[in-house]
Nucleic acid binder design. Structure first.
Length: 351
DNA sequence: AAATCGGGGGT
DNA sequence: ACCCCAGATTT
């Protein structure tokens, strides 16, 4: 980790580049408040800017402040989160808003330590909130910053390990300047997002290039070192699309934890045989036209899920199924519920 | 320390 | 088809 550049010169270089080329017109960069920055940071976790923007605009219109979010129903929050993924972010966002209202009288606490105790806010997100919206010096270490730093210092090792992560935090803290925190934080993210990109870094126009060890190595894209590969298991599930005579589909809430936590989905079975078993138990005299639709594959970060949709038309509406909560969903008049992306897709294609 | 959580966009 | 993205939480 040797560079001719002092930490001060590093920040000055970044800030000068930001003044000329940084992004200053993103939605969350207007009317900067802790609430608006917080929501944007949560949405931007593992999700790219272009994807987030329409979700952010809708969310801000519906929940303009932390009080509005705190008093909302979880279904209303997850409805606006449908399609963004990582739904624990939506649940944590909601829980966090309620804690801020209850414990802090609706005002965001002004330290990385206090913010980090709140659900969904870790060290990096807390650093972003205080540096951008409160003018408090703090480092961040998101994907963009990791990429810039691992390249600039040619840091070996996968950043998922504690060793590499600690080293990167040390570097990030050391490089954060004493002034212009908001601009520096934004500048580092912009560098990573627009210049020091994953596969085609624009080293030719990068102000850090003369001192960059990654560039000197002639293989800057080898940083950050990639995660060790693992085979993804293949899993299967049968989704039962029960349609009543009114054209409504039966949905059930999923558990709060695990895949699609807190969202609504079709009843599922681990095999077609068990699906038919379940059908005869609950709909023995009302189910007809059971038809297996074309299956498709949905890929998660850690496994592939083969979804086998089964269309079942009911001769009449049926009462409560066991003790489970349930909702009859009309695709022509959608309810405000959180839906997993494949469920939403299936409901739309049923029209 | 390692596993768990989605969906989309780039290549 | 594969990689990974403005990470945090749980085990």
């Amino acid at each position: 980790m040797t560079s001719a550049l002092t930490t001060t010169a590093f920040a000055d270089t970044i800030l000068h580049w930001y003044d000329l080329h940084g992004r200053k017109h993103l939605p969350w960069q207007q009317d900067i408040t802790p609430y608006r920055v917080w929501v944007s940071e949560i949405m931007l976790q593992q999700t790219q800017v272009a994807t987030v923007i329409p979700y952010y605009e809708r969310f801000m219109e519906r929940f303009p402040n932390v009080q509005a979010l705190a008093t909302a129903e979880q279904d209303d929050v997850l409805h606006l989160w449908t399609g963004l993924g990582y739904y624990a972010r939506g649940r944590n966002l909601h829980a966090c808003a309620r804690q801020i209202v209850e414990r802090y009288n609706g005002e965001f606490p002004q330290s990385v330590e206090q913010l980090s105790e709140l659900p969904g806010i870790g060290r990096s997100t807390a650093g972003a909130i205080v540096s951008i919206s409160m003018d408090i010096r703090a480092a961040i270490l998101d994907g963009n910053v990791k990429r810039v730093l691992t390249r600039f210092y040619a840091v070996e090792g996968w950043p998922g390990t504690t060793t590499v992560q600690n080293r990167l935090w040390d570097i990030a803290e050391r490089l954060t300047p004493q002034h212009r925190h908001r601009e520096y934080t934004q500048a580092m993210m912009d560098m990573g997002a627009t210049l020091c990109t994953r596969s085609k870094p624009a080293c030719g126009i990068c102000p850090l290039q003369p001192e960059c060890l990654g560039h000197a190595s002639s293989k800057p894209t080898q940083y950050p070192n990639s995660k060790p590969k693992k085979d993804k298991p293949e899993k299967h599930t049968w989704m039962l699309m029960l349609r009543n005579p009114q054209g409504e589909y039966l949905l059930q809430p999923r558990p709060q934890t695990g895949i699609w936590g807190g969202l609504w989905s079709f009843p599922e079975a681990p095999s077609m045989a068990q699906a038919e078993q379940w059908l005869s138990t609950h709909f023995g005299d009302t189910a007809e036209h059971t038809q297996e639709l074309n299956s498709f594959r949905h890929t998660f970060s850690h496994y592939h899920l083969h979804i086998h949709p089964v269309a079942i038309s009911l001769t009449r509406s049926t009462a409560q199924i066991g003790e489970a909560e349930q909702h009859w969903y009309n695709p022509r008049n959608p309810s405000a519920l959180g839906l997993a992306a494949p469920v939403k897709k299936l409901l739309q294609s049923s029209l």
